[in-house]
Simulated scan of single mutants.
Amino acid sequence: MESFHAIIKREWINRFRIKNYRHTYILVFEYIETFYNTVRIHSHCNYMSPNKFEKVYEKVNNSSMSIAS
C-alpha cells in the first residue's frame, strides 16, 4: 500500500494544487479509474496494462475454446 501511495503522489497528485478534500477525492478517483486500473503496467499482469492483459487473455481463451470444439 505504501508503494501505491508513493506512485500516486509521484505520477499524479504532485501535478495539482489541492483545493480541498473533494478536489483530492476527485483526483484520486480519476487516477485510479482512468489510468491505474486501465493503462498503467502491472507486474502481476506480466508487465502489461490491465486492458492489454484482458485482451490477450480473451484471445488465448477464445482460440483454445475453438480448438476444443
Score class of each variant (00 low, 15 high):
1 M>W: 03
2 E>P: 05
2 E>L: 04
2 E>Y: 10
3 S>M: 13
3 S>K: 09
3 S>R: 06
4 F>G: 02
4 F>P: 02
4 F>S: 01
4 F>Q: 03
4 F>D: 11
5 H>V: 09
5 H>Y: 15
5 H>L: 13
6 A>F: 12
6 A>P: 01
6 A>M: 15
7 I>P: 01
7 I>L: 14
7 I>G: 02
7 I>Y: 09
8 I>M: 14
8 I>Q: 13
9 K>M: 11
9 K>W: 07
9 K>N: 11
10 R>F: 09
10 R>N: 15
11 E>N: 13
11 E>Q: 09
11 E>F: 13
12 W>Y: 08
13 I>L: 15
13 I>Q: 04
13 I>E: 02
16 F>Q: 12
16 F>G: 07
16 F>W: 02
17 R>M: 08
17 R>K: 09
18 I>E: 04
18 I>Y: 07
19 K>Y: 04
19 K>F: 02
19 K>C: 04
21 Y>S: 11
21 Y>L: 13
21 Y>F: 14
21 Y>N: 07
21 Y>C: 09
22 R>L: 07
23 H>W: 03
23 H>A: 10
23 H>E: 04
23 H>K: 02
23 H>N: 04
25 Y>L: 10
26 I>D: 08
26 I>A: 05
26 I>V: 14
27 L>D: 05
27 L>H: 01
28 V>T: 10
28 V>H: 02
29 F>M: 10
29 F>N: 08
30 E>W: 00
30 E>T: 11
30 E>L: 00
31 Y>I: 00
31 Y>A: 01
32 I>R: 11
32 I>E: 09
32 I>V: 14
32 I>S: 05
33 E>Y: 12
33 E>V: 03
33 E>S: 13
33 E>T: 11
34 T>D: 05
34 T>E: 12
34 T>Y: 10
34 T>S: 14
35 F>W: 07
35 F>A: 09
36 Y>F: 06
36 Y>C: 00
36 Y>S: 01
36 Y>V: 00
36 Y>D: 00
36 Y>N: 00
40 R>V: 01
41 I>F: 00
41 I>D: 00
41 I>A: 03
41 I>C: 03
41 I>L: 12
42 H>K: 01
42 H>N: 06
42 H>M: 05
42 H>F: 01
42 H>V: 05
42 H>P: 04
43 S>C: 01
44 H>T: 07
44 H>Q: 13
45 C>K: 03
46 N>I: 01
47 Y>M: 08
47 Y>W: 05
49 S>N: 02
50 P>T: 14
51 N>V: 06
51 N>L: 11
52 K>N: 08
52 K>H: 06
52 K>Q: 05
52 K>E: 14
53 F>I: 00
53 F>T: 00
55 K>F: 07
56 V>Y: 11
56 V>M: 06
56 V>W: 12
56 V>G: 04
56 V>I: 11
57 Y>M: 12
57 Y>H: 15
57 Y>R: 08
58 E>C: 09
60 V>N: 15
60 V>L: 15
60 V>H: 12
60 V>G: 01
61 N>S: 11
61 N>I: 15
62 N>Q: 14
63 S>C: 06
64 S>E: 14
64 S>F: 12
66 S>C: 10
67 I>E: 13
68 A>W: 05
